[in-house]
């Protein structure tokens, strides 16, 4: 059932955007929420925002950056308790429930996860975009709505703070010493 006011090319344009960017938005949501219900809600609300403001969504590669920005706002609203379970995406929720795998325990990865979780939200934000979404400084700037310089600076600081938490220089030394001891035998 289609609204008479919707021009057909608007619908086509949105459908193309949706199908092309759905996996990226899904991944973005999976990385930042705990429950299947939240993932479904984030996907639904993000694309609904894009549908409503399709004129604001840029063409080409920048479209997914716009969607990341929208998803980011949706997640912020969720965290503030401003959102509730949406009726949209009920079937999607059911499908997402299948195939939530468990990753094997790895003490080193656990240490990184703990340190990462100890960072403040802004640091985690920018590191996730750089290392999981693999965005460049200018791309991160578009998602965050700041200048490229500001984005690069935030990324630099976040890396430094995480490095301090992980105390990587000490880790390097320990690795070297262990190898030497092994050889001495």
């Amino acid at each position: 059932m289609q609204d008479q006011r919707v021009p057909p090319d608007t619908r086509d344009r949105f459908e193309a955007l949706y199908l092309a960017c759905y996996p990226a938005v899904h991944r973005y949501a999976v990385r930042r929420t705990d429950s299947v219900d939240d993932v479904a809600d984030v996907i639904a609300e993000t694309f609904l925002a894009a549908w409503r403001r399709l004129d604001d969504v840029p063409e080409g590669e920048a479209a997914v950056l716009w969607l990341y920005g929208a998803a980011r706002r949706v997640l912020a609203n969720h965290r503030r308790g401003e959102s509730r379970r949406t009726a949209l995406a009920s079937r999607l929720r059911g499908e997402l429930a299948v195939g939530q795998g468990q990753t094997a325990a790895d003490p080193r990865a656990d240490a990184v996860r703990t340190a990462f979780a100890a960072l403040n939200a802004a640091d985690r934000d920018v590191l996730a975009l750089a290392c999981w979404e693999e965005l460049t400084g200018p791309q991160i700037a578009k998602v965050l709505g700041c200048s490229s310089t500001a984005a690069r600076l935030r990324l630099h600081r976040a890396r430094k703070r995480l490095a301090r938490l992980l105390d990587t220089t000490t880790t390097d030394e320990v690795t070297v010493m262990t190898a030497l001891r092994g050889e001495a035998r």
Binding site: R5, A44, L92
Partner: peptide, 13 residues
């Protein structure tokens, strides 16, 4: 599910 969501979204003005 993904198709259903698309249909629901475009049904809203």
């Amino acid at each position: 599910g993904v198709q259903d969501l698309l249909a629901e979204i475009v049904a809203t003005p």
